[in-house]
Structures are given as C-alpha cells and as structure tokens.
Amino acid sequence: MTMPAFRLERPRSLADAVSILATHGPDAMILAGGTDVVPNLQMKLFSPRVLVDIKPLAKNAQLASIDWSPANGLRIGALATLTSICESPLIREKFPVLAAAVATIAGPLQRNMGTVGGNLCLETRCQWYNQSDFWRKSLGGCLKKDGPICHVAPGGKFCWAAWSGDSAPALLTLDAEIEITGPQGARRLPLAQFYKNDGMDRIALGRDELLTAVHVPARMAGRRGNYHKLRVRNSIDYPLAGVAVSMHVDSRGICRDARLALTAVNPAPLLVKEACEWLAGQPASPELIDRVAQQAIRTAKPLTTSGSTPVYRRDMVRVFTRRALEESWRSADGK
C-alpha cells in the first residue's frame, strides 16, 4: 500500500502550528505519534493536502510533560507518550484508572509512539470503514466514507463507527478537562463535552485548533479505580468494549463519589451519569451494583462495528461494570 501525497509541515512553535492549521483549514490534518493517522492514510481514509507534524513541539512548551501539584492537579501535555503515562509512578499511584487504561492501549511499540492527544482525538472505528481502498470500493463505500449507506444500520443516516480509545473513559471518570489552543489562545473544556457521539463528526475541535493538554483536578487524586477491556488478544487489539471506574470510598466502606464510563460501545466514550447519583452515599451491595450494571447496559448501544457481536459486548459491559465496582470497593477496604 502506498501513502497518499501531502505536504509535510513541522512547526517549531505552538503559534506556528496554529497559524498553519488556520491557513489550511479542512485541508490540514494534525499528525502526532501517527499510530492512527498513518495506517489510515495508507488505507486512503483521508487525503489531507497538508500534514502538520506537531511532534517537534514536544521539545518546547510543556507539550509532552507530566506535571502534578496539589494546587493545580495533574497536567499531561498532549504529546506525552502513552508509555510515559502508564509507566509514570505518579499516575500509577494517584490515578490508577488512567494508568490501567493506558497500559491496555495497543502494544508497547504503539504506546512508545502514540500520544495522549492522539488517543483523545482518535478517529472512530468500524469494520466497514477501517479497510483498504480496494475493499471499500468493492463495497461501494459507507456513510462515513464515499458511500450512501451505513452497513451497520442500513436504514439510517447516522454513522455508528465506535469510539475505540481507552484513555478517554478513564479520564472521564476523573472529571478531566482538556486544554485546546487556537488562534484566540488556550481554552479549557470538560472532556465530557468534547465528544459528539457521532461516528462521522467525533470531536468538538475547530479546524484551527489543537489539543495541548489534559488536566485532572487534584481532588480526584488517590481515588481507587480500574479499567476492564474486552479484546481478543491481550496486546495490540483495540477495545471491543471497555469499562472504567473511579471511586472514592470512605473508611466505613461508603462510596462518597463515583464515576463510571464506557468505551467502544457508542460513537463516543460516555459517562454513565446515573451511576454517579446512585452510588454516592451507598455501601456496597449486590443489588446496587447490579442496578448500576443494568444502567450501563442501557447506556451502551454497540452495533456490529467490530468482530464481536453487540449482544456479547453488552453482556460484557454488565460483567465488567460489576467487576470494576466490586474491585474498587474491595481495594478501598484494603486501605
């Protein structure tokens, strides 16, 4: 497979990067680690005129660093590699759900290249879309690319390509905010508002903007949490479903505050909002856990976007939710 033709820009400053993006608008595409962009380019899924390689920015600014202070919480530069995140002793200790989720992304080689910014802006995935040019043409394309119909839900005009990133659900359970830099400077946005739950138009990011950092509030530090991922192989594979939980449990075993988020079962990573309400103030009980798990299933709307069936993926959302909650409670007890 060959690569499509494009011009490569390698801006040395954030300002340059923003201005290049502003100049080229929809013709430009950001390249970070490239682990999503480059395979997709080879499949001719997009044809940017200009590829803006932002890796050189890792040298200046704080675009690749991981910083923590009790006052400002955690800040991860968008170009921080996945390896640097899951191997960070700080993140492992204070934000275990994030370390756990990131450690499941692809395999070690991809994690050495992939960045958290790229992971949060990942293209949505579908078995009718992530295929070669020849394959898609032989099918006549799909709604997301070059075609009139969605093969997942042929009747509708909605693209169900699944959000298939692993860090986003973890960060959602940590009330993360992202820092977006554009011509007007930097702004912050709750991560939950970044995702549009539309397979074709996944994130709320202007064409002249880039994601520059992720922030996690200090109050989320030290929470228990874990991540359960459904996949065929224990390395390399994208999630077929994923459940992230973070929880603050007091010394009496009462859940003070909890978040539950799902991935790979909708076009966006989604918080199960009810979980937060229902769990707060409660001790662990099988009935409660079961109720939350049932709610998680209602939030998950997997369709046949991947090799596993929707029925099984929903089933696993339930099992994983229960396990994740039980484990969080248990590990809190142990403290």
């Binding site: 497979m1 390698r10 680690g33 490239g34 480059v38 080689l109 991809q110 050495n112 290249m113 070669s132």
Partner: peptide, 27 residues
Amino acid sequence: CDDSSCGACSVLVDGVPMLACVALAAS
C-alpha cells in the same frame, strides 16, 4: 502488515523501540 500491527519493522529511535511503518522519514 499494512496496519502497524505486527512489529516486524521495529527500529530504535533514541533507544526506544518504535514502528518504522508508522514513521514519516522526514519526521
């Protein structure tokens, strides 16, 4: 492979193993 999933193209970049099939040479 053609989707960066097999590892046969691994090279060291400043001592860190990475996939040469994901890397644009100019970068």
